[in-house]
Design a protein around this nucleic acid. Sequence first.
DNA 1: CAGGCAAAGTTGGAGCCACAGGCGATGGTC
DNA 2: GACCATCGCCTGTGGCTCCAACTTTGCCTG
Lengths: 245, 245
Amino acid sequence: MANSDPVYLRVVEDLRRQIVDGTLPPGAPIPSRHQITRKYSVGETAARHALRVLAQEGLIVGRVGSGHRVREKPILTPSYRSRVPEPHNPFAMDMQASGRQPTWSWRSELAEAPPEIAQRLQLSQWSPVIRVRFVCRGDGRPMQLATSYELVEFGQSQAPEEGTGERRSTVARMAANGTAITEISESVHIRVPQPSESDTLELPTGVQVLHVERTYWAGERPVETSDIVFPGDRFRLVYGIPVHP
Amino acid sequence: MANSDPVYLRVVEDLRRQIVDGTLPPGAPIPSRHQITRKYSVGETAARHALRVLAQEGLIVGRVGSGHRVREKPILTPSYRSRVPEPHNPFAMDMQASGRQPTWSWRSELAEAPPEIAQRLQLSQWSPVIRVRFVCRGDGRPMQLATSYELVEFGQSQAPEEGTGERRSTVARMAANGTAITEISESVHIRVPQPSESDTLELPTGVQVLHVERTYWAGERPVETSDIVFPGDRFRLVYGIPVHP
DNA sequence: CAGGCAAAGTTGGAGCCACAGGCGATGGTC
DNA sequence: GACCATCGCCTGTGGCTCCAACTTTGCCTG
């Protein structure tokens, strides 16, 4: 049956089987192109294509000069929670749960809301907003990117700032302002990362990202919206939704 | 600046720009490999690689014999809602909202819970459960796949059944049984589709899927769990989460 | 003995060519 | 005018080769 199939698929299927059943454990080296051509009696094109497919599936990672290896920790899954006891930070909880040191760096500045963001915040285009860009790291490696836009009236400071370390959660900051967040809505989808994103997240080519658009509501009014981007094969989003409470 | 960049990226970026800004509208033909080699003065390998990248991003689709075209409806995004007024079916709502005719086909049978499912239902391995497999279609094209596992005690029928058409929601069915669903929990992540999945969902190679693991709880007890798989670039998951109600 | 350097191996990019098989348009035949 | 066969174009697969950039290893020199 695997007779008229493309040759490279034979290689892909064999290596994939070895990876998923543990014959090739995380970190194990994958045969090089030359070794594959000999072992499977295929040409170099097929060998290269097979490696590309596996890399694209996120099962292996290739580094120039040092070969391909089975991806480390093929998905330890810290979870990303939307419902989390405030004022705890879900990212910090996930990192600590998986034994990693969470760090943050961020930069806030006054900006003009691009059309899509203005729509999400029910503002007119190019209204002033406070934009904060985050990079969340675990053991120093970037794991999540976030850009958040906040109504200026609630912003403590309109001057550019930057820093490292945890930032108080939106709910807590708003509460300190006398504004109660009543609902958080999120929209989740898959997309291809921008080159800059796959760069900073150190994603192998072909791995797509989860993009979460989150909006914080105070009654009928959206007061902050953020875009959160992270590799969705390493993370899980976890939701718990009560049924008619 | 785009000087030391790989040649194929020049082609990718130019074509991508033309697609996103509408110069190449949905359905428009993409230059063939030979045309690309001439137009951009690149080799055939680069042209092929560029087309592969764009196909992998889901922007174009290639068919043997007839060339590449800009993907139709570059993603109208019906949304997938977790919180939905019962007894409405979120899939039906999405399809009707986007002017498509929703249809279903399903098949239920008695099965033994594989380890992971048993764990999710807090059963011992290979306990009997009722497994239902769904294919949800819009205008006849498969758009979502789901497999659900239900405790036998709540199953109306243990004999294999199959049918087409809508099925009552879990919450409604359980309510009819005298069991109130109190919470739905979901875990969401990205993964590479199984060959069978990308086949039935008609996904271009390289497009990954959203995998939702959903569990229905009656108090402390899980009573049903399902795996829902769908292309996360065409669909969105939408959540609305009240903050300390 | 240590440090540095060179060689070997590896990936990723790129070019060229060939062939099988699907698709479509063109032209010729009935 | 309708229908069909043929031919050319296009993709997907696959083979071979070369090169630049990078890593690792181990040897050699100081």
